Computed example of a mutant assay.
Amino acid sequence: MAEHPIVATNAPEEHEPEVEEAFDRLVSEGKDRLGRPLLPLVSTGLLGGIDIGTGILAMLLVLHATGSHLLAGLAFSIGFVALLLARSELFTENFLVPVTAVVAREGTLRSLARLWGMTLLLNLVGGWIVMWLLVTSFPSLHETVLEAGTHFGTMPIGLRSFCLAVLAGVVITLMTRMQHGTESTGVRIVPAILFGALLAGGQLFHSVLDSLLMFGALIVGAPFGYLDWLARLGWAALGNLAGGLLLVTAVRLLRVTHRIEEAHREKG
Protein backbone atom coordinates (compact mmCIF):
# COMPACT_ATOMS: atom_id res chain seq x y z
CA MET A 1 0.00 0.00 0.00
CA ALA A 2 1.46 3.35 -1.11
CA GLU A 3 2.45 5.78 1.57
CA HIS A 4 1.03 9.27 1.44
CA PRO A 5 3.56 12.10 1.56
CA ILE A 6 3.70 13.96 4.83
CA VAL A 7 2.88 17.66 4.39
CA ALA A 8 5.09 19.86 6.53
CA THR A 9 3.15 22.19 8.79
CA ASN A 10 6.08 24.50 9.43
CA ALA A 11 6.92 25.28 5.81
CA PRO A 12 8.34 28.76 5.34
CA GLU A 13 5.80 31.41 4.44
CA GLU A 14 5.79 32.44 0.80
CA HIS A 15 6.42 36.14 0.33
CA GLU A 16 5.58 38.51 -2.51
CA PRO A 17 8.76 39.67 -4.28
CA GLU A 18 7.10 42.86 -5.59
CA VAL A 19 6.00 43.87 -2.10
CA GLU A 20 9.47 43.19 -0.68
CA GLU A 21 11.15 45.19 -3.45
CA ALA A 22 8.82 48.11 -2.77
CA PHE A 23 9.64 47.85 0.95
CA ASP A 24 13.37 48.01 0.17
CA ARG A 25 12.83 51.11 -1.99
CA LEU A 26 10.79 52.77 0.75
CA VAL A 27 13.44 52.10 3.39
CA SER A 28 16.26 53.33 1.16
CA GLU A 29 14.50 56.56 0.16
CA GLY A 30 13.18 57.09 3.67
CA LYS A 31 16.68 56.84 5.10
CA ASP A 32 17.85 59.48 2.60
CA ARG A 33 14.98 61.81 3.47
CA LEU A 34 15.53 61.49 7.21
CA GLY A 35 19.23 62.26 6.84
CA ARG A 36 18.78 65.17 4.45
CA PRO A 37 20.97 68.20 5.33
CA LEU A 38 19.28 71.47 6.27
CA LEU A 39 19.65 73.39 3.00
CA PRO A 40 18.32 70.60 0.75
CA LEU A 41 15.48 70.08 3.24
CA VAL A 42 14.59 73.77 3.10
CA SER A 43 14.76 73.81 -0.70
CA THR A 44 12.66 70.65 -1.11
CA GLY A 45 9.96 71.84 1.28
CA LEU A 46 9.80 75.36 -0.13
CA LEU A 47 9.59 74.08 -3.70
CA GLY A 48 6.87 71.63 -2.66
CA GLY A 49 4.61 74.54 -1.73
CA ILE A 50 5.49 76.42 -4.91
CA ASP A 51 5.00 73.38 -7.15
CA ILE A 52 1.60 72.52 -5.68
CA GLY A 53 0.68 76.17 -6.28
CA THR A 54 0.93 75.55 -10.03
CA GLY A 55 -1.75 72.90 -9.64
CA ILE A 56 -3.94 75.33 -7.71
CA LEU A 57 -3.54 77.90 -10.49
CA ALA A 58 -4.72 75.33 -13.03
CA MET A 59 -7.57 74.29 -10.75
CA LEU A 60 -8.79 77.85 -10.22
CA LEU A 61 -8.62 78.70 -13.92
CA VAL A 62 -10.75 75.66 -14.78
CA LEU A 63 -13.13 76.22 -11.86
CA HIS A 64 -13.58 79.85 -12.91
CA ALA A 65 -14.29 78.84 -16.53
CA THR A 66 -16.52 75.82 -15.91
CA GLY A 67 -17.78 75.91 -12.32
CA SER A 68 -17.04 72.16 -12.13
CA HIS A 69 -15.05 70.94 -9.14
CA LEU A 70 -14.45 67.60 -10.88
CA LEU A 71 -12.85 69.19 -13.94
CA ALA A 72 -10.94 71.58 -11.70
CA GLY A 73 -9.66 68.61 -9.69
CA LEU A 74 -8.38 66.98 -12.86
CA ALA A 75 -6.55 70.20 -13.74
CA PHE A 76 -5.07 70.33 -10.24
CA SER A 77 -3.25 67.04 -10.85
CA ILE A 78 -0.69 69.13 -12.76
CA GLY A 79 0.64 70.05 -9.32
CA PHE A 80 1.18 66.43 -8.31
CA VAL A 81 2.92 65.69 -11.59
CA ALA A 82 5.19 68.69 -10.90
CA LEU A 83 5.94 67.36 -7.40
CA LEU A 84 6.88 63.98 -8.85
CA LEU A 85 9.05 65.10 -11.74
CA ALA A 86 10.66 68.06 -9.94
CA ARG A 87 11.47 65.88 -6.89
CA SER A 88 9.90 68.25 -4.38
CA GLU A 89 7.71 67.07 -1.48
CA LEU A 90 4.52 67.75 0.41
CA PHE A 91 4.21 67.22 4.15
CA THR A 92 1.68 64.42 3.64
CA GLU A 93 3.96 62.57 1.22
CA ASN A 94 6.20 61.83 4.20
CA PHE A 95 3.80 59.52 6.01
CA LEU A 96 4.75 56.27 4.27
CA VAL A 97 8.37 56.58 3.11
CA PRO A 98 10.25 57.91 6.18
CA VAL A 99 7.95 56.10 8.63
CA THR A 100 8.87 52.81 6.96
CA ALA A 101 12.54 53.68 7.41
CA VAL A 102 11.99 54.47 11.10
CA VAL A 103 10.15 51.16 11.60
CA ALA A 104 13.13 49.40 9.95
CA ARG A 105 15.45 51.27 12.36
CA GLU A 106 17.08 53.28 9.58
CA GLY A 107 16.02 56.54 11.20
CA THR A 108 14.85 58.04 14.49
CA LEU A 109 11.61 59.62 15.69
CA ARG A 110 13.55 62.84 16.22
CA SER A 111 14.66 62.94 12.58
CA LEU A 112 11.08 62.15 11.53
CA ALA A 113 9.72 65.06 13.59
CA ARG A 114 12.35 67.34 12.03
CA LEU A 115 11.36 66.24 8.53
CA TRP A 116 7.63 66.66 9.18
CA GLY A 117 7.92 70.03 10.92
CA MET A 118 10.30 71.61 8.42
CA THR A 119 8.45 70.28 5.38
CA LEU A 120 5.04 71.49 6.57
CA LEU A 121 6.35 74.92 7.52
CA LEU A 122 8.19 75.41 4.24
CA ASN A 123 5.31 74.05 2.16
CA LEU A 124 3.16 76.77 3.73
CA VAL A 125 5.73 79.52 3.21
CA GLY A 126 6.24 78.60 -0.46
CA GLY A 127 2.50 78.22 -0.90
CA TRP A 128 1.73 81.66 0.56
CA ILE A 129 4.22 83.26 -1.82
CA VAL A 130 2.76 81.59 -4.90
CA MET A 131 -0.81 82.43 -3.81
CA TRP A 132 0.14 86.10 -3.45
CA LEU A 133 1.59 85.99 -6.95
CA LEU A 134 -1.52 84.24 -8.23
CA VAL A 135 -4.11 86.66 -6.85
CA THR A 136 -1.99 89.66 -7.83
CA SER A 137 -1.58 88.38 -11.39
CA PHE A 138 -5.21 87.28 -11.93
CA PRO A 139 -7.72 89.78 -10.48
CA SER A 140 -10.43 87.97 -12.45
CA LEU A 141 -9.93 84.93 -10.18
CA HIS A 142 -10.51 86.79 -6.91
CA GLU A 143 -14.13 85.73 -6.58
CA THR A 144 -13.26 82.09 -7.33
CA VAL A 145 -10.34 82.14 -4.88
CA LEU A 146 -12.52 83.73 -2.21
CA GLU A 147 -15.25 81.11 -2.63
CA ALA A 148 -12.83 78.17 -2.67
CA GLY A 149 -10.84 79.38 0.33
CA THR A 150 -13.88 80.38 2.38
CA HIS A 151 -15.32 76.89 1.92
CA PHE A 152 -12.44 75.51 3.99
CA GLY A 153 -11.81 78.58 6.16
CA THR A 154 -15.33 78.46 7.59
CA MET A 155 -15.74 74.66 7.60
CA PRO A 156 -16.87 73.58 11.10
CA ILE A 157 -14.25 71.68 13.09
CA GLY A 158 -16.07 68.45 13.75
CA LEU A 159 -16.60 64.87 12.66
CA ARG A 160 -17.32 65.59 8.99
CA SER A 161 -14.23 67.75 8.45
CA PHE A 162 -12.09 65.22 10.35
CA CYS A 163 -13.36 62.39 8.13
CA LEU A 164 -12.57 64.47 5.04
CA ALA A 165 -9.05 64.95 6.41
CA VAL A 166 -8.67 61.23 7.11
CA LEU A 167 -9.70 60.46 3.53
CA ALA A 168 -7.18 63.01 2.25
CA GLY A 169 -4.43 61.26 4.23
CA VAL A 170 -5.49 57.90 2.81
CA VAL A 171 -5.51 59.24 -0.77
CA ILE A 172 -2.05 60.84 -0.58
CA THR A 173 -0.39 57.93 1.21
CA LEU A 174 -1.92 55.38 -1.15
CA MET A 175 -0.67 57.46 -4.08
CA THR A 176 2.81 57.41 -2.56
CA ARG A 177 2.66 53.64 -2.09
CA MET A 178 1.58 53.06 -5.69
CA GLN A 179 4.35 55.28 -7.01
CA HIS A 180 6.96 53.32 -5.04
CA GLY A 181 5.65 50.06 -6.40
CA THR A 182 7.46 50.74 -9.67
CA GLU A 183 10.66 52.35 -10.92
CA SER A 184 8.99 53.62 -14.12
CA THR A 185 8.47 57.39 -14.11
CA GLY A 186 5.74 57.05 -16.73
CA VAL A 187 3.79 54.66 -14.53
CA ARG A 188 4.29 56.86 -11.46
CA ILE A 189 2.59 59.75 -13.27
CA VAL A 190 -0.68 57.78 -13.49
CA PRO A 191 -1.45 57.76 -9.73
CA ALA A 192 -0.31 61.40 -9.51
CA ILE A 193 -3.04 62.34 -11.98
CA LEU A 194 -5.73 60.03 -10.60
CA PHE A 195 -5.27 60.79 -6.92
CA GLY A 196 -4.61 64.48 -7.48
CA ALA A 197 -7.96 64.71 -9.26
CA LEU A 198 -9.66 62.75 -6.47
CA LEU A 199 -8.18 64.94 -3.73
CA ALA A 200 -9.08 68.30 -5.26
CA GLY A 201 -12.22 67.25 -7.13
CA GLY A 202 -13.67 65.65 -4.00
CA GLN A 203 -12.77 68.74 -1.92
CA LEU A 204 -11.06 66.60 0.69
CA PHE A 205 -9.51 68.36 3.68
CA HIS A 206 -5.78 68.47 3.01
CA SER A 207 -3.52 70.44 5.33
CA VAL A 208 -1.34 72.03 2.62
CA LEU A 209 -3.65 72.23 -0.41
CA ASP A 210 -6.52 73.78 1.50
CA SER A 211 -4.19 76.10 3.43
CA LEU A 212 -3.10 77.58 0.11
CA LEU A 213 -6.70 78.13 -0.90
CA MET A 214 -7.34 79.79 2.46
CA PHE A 215 -4.23 81.96 1.99
CA GLY A 216 -5.57 83.17 -1.34
CA ALA A 217 -8.92 84.03 0.23
CA LEU A 218 -7.23 85.81 3.13
CA ILE A 219 -5.15 87.93 0.75
CA VAL A 220 -8.23 89.13 -1.17
CA GLY A 221 -10.34 89.78 1.94
CA ALA A 222 -11.82 86.61 3.42
CA PRO A 223 -14.57 86.64 6.09
CA PHE A 224 -12.24 84.67 8.41
CA GLY A 225 -8.78 85.26 9.86
CA TYR A 226 -5.42 83.60 10.23
CA LEU A 227 -6.39 82.13 13.59
CA ASP A 228 -9.30 80.39 11.86
CA TRP A 229 -6.85 79.06 9.28
CA LEU A 230 -4.45 77.88 11.98
CA ALA A 231 -7.17 75.94 13.80
CA ARG A 232 -8.22 74.21 10.59
CA LEU A 233 -4.61 73.50 9.67
CA GLY A 234 -4.14 71.61 12.93
CA TRP A 235 -7.42 69.71 12.53
CA ALA A 236 -6.63 68.77 8.92
CA ALA A 237 -3.08 67.70 9.78
CA LEU A 238 -4.39 65.48 12.59
CA GLY A 239 -6.87 63.80 10.25
CA ASN A 240 -4.28 63.46 7.50
CA LEU A 241 -1.94 61.73 9.96
CA ALA A 242 -4.68 59.38 11.12
CA GLY A 243 -5.59 58.39 7.57
CA GLY A 244 -2.06 58.14 6.22
CA LEU A 245 -0.42 56.40 9.17
CA LEU A 246 -3.18 54.19 10.58
CA LEU A 247 -5.25 53.22 7.56
CA VAL A 248 -2.47 52.90 4.96
CA THR A 249 1.07 52.78 6.36
CA ALA A 250 0.46 50.60 9.43
CA VAL A 251 -1.80 48.15 7.63
CA ARG A 252 0.56 47.77 4.68
CA LEU A 253 3.56 47.19 6.93
CA LEU A 254 1.77 44.09 8.19
CA ARG A 255 2.53 42.51 4.81
CA VAL A 256 6.28 42.75 5.40
CA THR A 257 6.61 41.95 9.11
CA HIS A 258 9.28 39.36 8.29
CA ARG A 259 11.43 42.02 6.60
CA ILE A 260 10.96 44.36 9.54
CA GLU A 261 12.10 41.57 11.89
CA GLU A 262 15.14 40.94 9.66
CA ALA A 263 16.01 44.64 9.75
CA HIS A 264 15.74 44.65 13.54
CA ARG A 265 18.02 41.61 13.83
CA GLU A 266 20.60 43.27 11.59
CA LYS A 267 20.51 46.39 13.76
CA GLY A 268 20.85 44.28 16.86
Rank of each mutant, 00 (worst) to 15 (best):
Gly243Gln: 07
Thr249His: 09
Met59Leu: 13
Arg25Val: 03
Leu253Met: 14
Thr119Cys: 12
Val97Gln: 11
Phe195Pro: 02
Ala165Leu: 06
Leu124Thr: 03
Ala263Ser: 14
Asp210Leu: 00
Ala222Glu: 06
Trp116His: 11
Arg232Phe: 01
Gly49Met: 05
Ser207Asp: 11
Ala217Asp: 10
Leu254Val: 00
Gln179Ser: 12
Leu84Asn: 11
Leu71Gly: 01
Val171Ala: 12
Met155His: 09
Phe152His: 06
Val99Arg: 12
Val130His: 06
Leu121Trp: 02
Leu204Asp: 08
Ala75Phe: 01
Ala72His: 01
Pro139Tyr: 06
Phe152Asp: 04
Gly73Thr: 00
Leu115Ile: 01
Leu115Trp: 03
Met131Leu: 15
Glu21Trp: 02
Thr108Glu: 12
Asp24Phe: 02
Leu213Phe: 06
Val19Gln: 15
Ile193Met: 11
Met175Gly: 07
Thr182Lys: 10
Pro40Phe: 02
Gly30Phe: 05
Met178Asn: 08
Leu38Lys: 03
Arg25Cys: 07
Leu254Tyr: 01
Ser77Gln: 07
Phe76Gly: 00
Thr54Lys: 04
Trp229Gly: 04
Ala250Trp: 12
Gly45Tyr: 04
Ala2Lys: 13
Leu159Cys: 01
Val7Trp: 09
Leu245Thr: 04
Glu14Ala: 14
Trp235Gln: 11
Leu41Tyr: 01
Pro40Asp: 05
Met155Phe: 14
Gly55Arg: 01
Glu20Gly: 01
Lys267Asn: 13
Glu16Lys: 10
Leu230Asp: 07
Arg177Phe: 11
Pro191His: 10
Arg265Ala: 15
Ile157Gln: 11
Trp116Phe: 04
Val190Pro: 11
Gly35Phe: 05
Gly244Asn: 06
Leu233Thr: 00
Val170Gly: 11
Glu89His: 10
Ile6Ser: 12
Pro37Arg: 03
Arg232Ala: 01
Glu3Trp: 00
His69Asn: 13
Ser184Ala: 14
Thr100Ser: 14
Glu262Val: 00
Arg87Lys: 15
Leu198Trp: 05
Ile219Ala: 15
Leu112Gly: 08
Thr44Trp: 06
Trp235Glu: 12
Val220Lys: 07
Ala237Val: 06
Asp210Cys: 06
Ala200Ile: 08
Met175Glu: 13
Leu63Lys: 13
His264Val: 04
Gly201Ser: 04
Leu47Val: 06
Leu34Ile: 05
Ala168Asn: 02
